[in-house]
Design a protein around this nucleic acid. Structure first.
Lengths: 318, 318
DNA sequence: CCATATTATACTCACATTGAGCATAATTCG
DNA sequence: CGAATTATGCTCAATGTGAGTATAATATGG
């Protein structure tokens, strides 16, 4: 008989606030993973319904906005793991990743799940307080070494590394999250890379701590895909508002956008562009909370979706 | 035993010239479909390699640039078809769509395959010579009727139709190809919709010819996804050049972009934006061909990819 | 109660980008 | 040679964007 195929569904459920962007993770021993499970053709009419079932079962959480990310099918990147049932043992595992957004970090204490800052897994992705030192001090040199080992691909490898990480004066492009992760994986710098391969193509080694926490199976790859997609999408669709509470100040919104992009933005220009976009509406009410002058509360104008000029938020770097 | 899962791989292979955008199609009786076949976990290390095998086998064609589009898994949208082998008969079929781009329409006469203008399947998508009449004369009214039948969803249906097709003064957004197709399908206006469902949720009917040629299985849906993706991507990545020959005039390039977008562009501004982009380089040589003043030949500056400012082409409507 | 810190919000200004169109150049065709 | 045809250059107003400066409204510490 031929090798059966099993389809794994994994979800990156994102929430965010002024402190950071969070993903919902489940515990597996001392590692973590994403909520996931196997697609059951008999129970589930669509992938999305199956996914929702698994997320609910494992975290007690009901996702709102959900979209498909990517389907990974390469051999050797996924080890069948917990939660996938017996059928998956000897099957070829295919992995369909989803992105979900939610405004609140619901209480999930009854489950073996946690909300965790996604930059734990990708410390080089957070530029809110400037470019992280590890890029130029550790990652850059390690990738240069790896490039040198590339024989006739050396130039190509170097160029890819420079573009992905904004080395040697090139710009940092925040959406290239997956590209960066894949590069580190390929160079053997991601802790999970040698593990999956079995071979020792690494060539380069680094204190693993600086390379971010790994996750089970191919989940870190799915998380990288989700971050990149969300960072891009935020600019041309008003998806940030799926992450916001009903009423918020413009600074709240800015902090969330900054958390997602891993960048800091120019406050006045950010607010000006929102003004013009027609995406938000002032409520006349004010927030007392913070130190200085009270900030006006805003809400997302859902009507904007009906008006066609449905763009995302501008992201003027500051 | 549980229902086995079969993974079908389908490819939208695109070529384009001044006359139109073409997709590579295979014949199945009097209908057509995309090159496709079943993913075999034993033979194929990755989806992409499997896909390339199938395309080569069915069309003799070797695709260059390839990217994954989307994975469809809903029950009822796919009927197992030719080329999927026995295993697929009683399996749940999952469909992974790919987009491939190629500069030349290679000779495929030895195979049962043809290059066909994709607007045959989506006549409402071609606005190069102005907004097609069928939109306001046939599709709009039919969707309005469908909306009216929606009970408490009526307003929502109407709004979706207006936004998707740019009805009642709303702008036409060319990337929304899939949204438009799905809406027609949902409204029962796509000829394949009632066929798949078995039920008669149609409610509305139209002379099928105006709704474009259907394709086997869910292939028209995959084609719609490909068109929408390509139309979007062209603007932020220099992918058009995958469709161009080595040397081309700026008008050649403009015609290809127009063919893909289904729009006509402002010539002077298109050329100005290309100038500034640094994506192309004049060769000093000239094209004699056409009626008037000879046009300079250009080539794509592949170096631009290494320089980081990797944007697509601007598309100034004219 | 005032000076100071803190946050919010308004406004300016130079500069780049974009939409729209006019003007000129280099061909072919009759 | 004149008209038609296509290519290419250039202008101009309007709009958008980056980078600030200025002012407003609150809290807090002396």
């Amino acid at each position: 008989m031929t090798t059966p195929i099993a389809v794994g569904l994994s979800a990156v459920i994102v929430a965010a606030d002024g402190n950071g962007p969070y993903a919902l993770e489940t515990r597996h021993g001392n590692a973590t993973g994403l909520p996931h499970g196997q697609f059951d053709p008999e129970r589930h009419r669509t992938f999305e319904l199956g996914l929702r079932d698994w997320v609910r079962a494992q975290t007690g959480f009901e996702p709102g906005y959900v979209e498909q990310l990517y389907t990974f099918g390469d051999r050797g990147r996924e080890l069948p793991q917990a939660n996938l049932g017996d059928a998956a043992r000897d099957a070829r595992l295919i992995s369909v990743g989803y992105l979900g957004l939610t405004p609140v970090r619901t209480d999930i204490s009854a489950f073996d799940a946690v909300w965790r800052d996604w930059y734990r897994h990708f410390p080089w992705e957070d530029h809110r307080k400037g470019r992280p030192d590890i890029i130029d001090e550790a990652i850059g040199p390690a990738l240069a070494t790896w490039a040198d080992l590339g024989g006739k691909n050396a130039a190509d490898r170097l160029s890819r590394a420079q573009l992905a990480f904004g080395l040697d004066g090139r710009p940092w492009i925040e959406e290239r999250t997956l590209e960066r992760y894949e590069l580190l994986y390929e160079a053997g710098l991601a802790p999970e890379a040698p593990r999956d391969r079995g071979k020792d193509k690494r060539g380069v080694s680094l204190p693993p701590a600086t390379m971010g926490e790994p996750m089970i199976s191919d989940h870190r790859r799915i998380l990288a895909t989700a971050i990149g997609r969300l960072r891009g999408k935020i600019k041309y669709r008003p998806v940030v508002f799926e992450l916001m509470p009903e009423r918020f100040t413009l600074l709240d919104l800015q902090k969330v956008v900054e958390a997602l992009l891993g960048l800091s933005l120019h406050k006045q220009n950010f607010r000006r562009s929102l003004d013009r976009s027609g995406l938000v509406e002032g409520l006349g009410a004010f927030n007392q909370a913070s130190g200085g002058r009270p900030a006006e509360l805003f809400r997302f104008r859902r009507e904007a979706l009906r008006e066609g000029h449905v763009l995302g938020v501008q992201t003027p770097r500051g």
